[in-house]
Amino acid sequence: MNWTAIWVTCKLASLTSIALLLIGLPIAYWLAYSKWRWKFLVESIVALPLVLPPTVLGFYLLVAIGPQSPIGQFYTNLTGYTLPFSFQGLLIASILYSLPFAVQPFATAFEQVDRKLIEASWTLGLSKLQTFFKLILPLSTAGLITGVVLSFAHTLGEFGVVLMVGGNIEGVTRTVSIEIYDNVQALDYAAAATTSAFLLVMSYTVLLLVYAVNRRVWSVWPQK
């Protein structure tokens, strides 16, 4: 087995989950509590990666972070490097690709916190921010775990976006799923089998964790 690819994959999945925890919480809070009538527009954008072919997402990202784009130029001026075909570029792509897998469970968990408890907290003098940390987050732990674990698992298996944005650079952007593809291309079925089995076991374990923690919070499986 190619341990370098496994290391890159795990690093990418972990950083993506952490980043999504930080970025996803405010987005989910806004989606759960905003009364804006056009909120569904944002909801649809967040959910877009669920249905968009990864190659389409990858293509737009590649254009958006390329050296000709404002984002790409800004990054190059800041660091001296370019984003496409780098680990950083891949990380940005992964965050966007897994966004719904974090935001949707977070938002569902926030929505399930009884409105009366939130109002009680306000009348007890706690600001909206204090209420978020002292009341809403502690009552949403199952949803938070679900979101983090699902985005980790989803990043583990991503293929199209990695190939489009990351390329296939050994030790930098070559993840396990691409490794398997390469193995098959090289007719090395034995290596592909081992790596596939590894990914299967790992994904299954991660999902076991989610369902064990909470069987009612949003998941890719329909709710009972």
Binding site: D114, K116, L117, E119, A120, S121, W122, T123, G125, L126, S127, L135, P138, L139
Partner: peptide
């Protein structure tokens, strides 16, 4: 003036105790 700044005690009908 938001509820936080009114410095009052409010008790809802079903008490709304924090379960955690």
């Amino acid at each position: 003036v938001p509820p936080q700044a009114r410095r009052l005690g409010y008790m809802a009908q079903d008490y709304a105790l924090f379960p955690h």
